[in-house]
Design a protein around this nucleic acid. Structure first.
Length: 190
DNA sequence: CGTAAGATGAAG
DNA sequence: TTCATCTTACGG
């Protein structure tokens, strides 16, 4: 069983693997939802595809805060994505949460997504924020803070982890910084 | 200021 | 494959 404190998030590459199998719990808005993290991607300051590549800005400030900080941003003018910050304060590292295996509040997730198929609730970075109710208001929360609307709990230990290229980026396309639980049906497709 | 590019998803 | 949709970053 993983120790759920900041040592889990020593750097974004190892954290991306160690977060797989952890349960992400959201009590955002009108109910509790949760799911096991089954797909992640790593980002850091040496990475052209990272929001932190050109240093700190208004938007990416949470990436430079302490490990466990939640970084939520709006993409394409309509979708939220969640990251969990890793590494030392001042070093812009984060892990993008790309897919969950639904656990609690599945009916609420179906409502929020207006979709009935359980496999289509949280199998993508923006789908999962919609299903769990995570939005800009949750930016800068901390997953180790019990008062936080978003926190993590122990889930399961993945048997096998696959490491591949990241999805949906145009820079640094050859880095194999995407990780997912082998065989899990809730992993985003492509 | 002006503007172009997004760590996406859904529909056709 | 196209498009919806709008904040952010960055240049002039």
């Amino acid at each position: 069983m993983q120790i759920l404190n900041e040592y889990l998030l020593d750097n974004s590459l190892t954290a991306a693997k160690k977060l797989l199998g952890c349960k992400l719990v959201s009590s955002c808005r009108d109910g509790v939802t949760s799911g096991y993290i089954v797909e992640t991607e790593s980002y850091n300051m040496q990475d052209e595809a990272s929001h932190s590549y050109r240093g700190q800005t208004t938007r990416n400030t949470p990436m430079f805060a302490k490990a466990g900080t939640v970084y939520v941003y709006l993409t394409y003018g309509m979708h939220y994505c969640v990251n969990i910050v890793a590494g030392a304060v001042g070093d812009g590292q984060a892990v993008l949460i790309r897919a969950l295996q639904p656990v609690d509040g599945i009916n609420l997730m179906k409502q929020r997504r207006a979709k009935d198929d359980i496999k289509n609730l949280t199998n993508g970075p923006a789908k999962l924020t919609q299903a769990t109710g995570i939005d800009k208001g949750d930016n800068k929360d901390n997953i180790f803070d019990q008062k936080s609307a978003i926190h993590i709990e122990w889930g399961f230990k993945p048997k096998n982890i696959i490491q591949t290229k990241r999805i949906g980026i145009k820079k640094s396309v050859d880095k194999k910084w995407r990780f997912y639980v082998a065989g899990n049906i809730y992993v985003s497709k492509k």
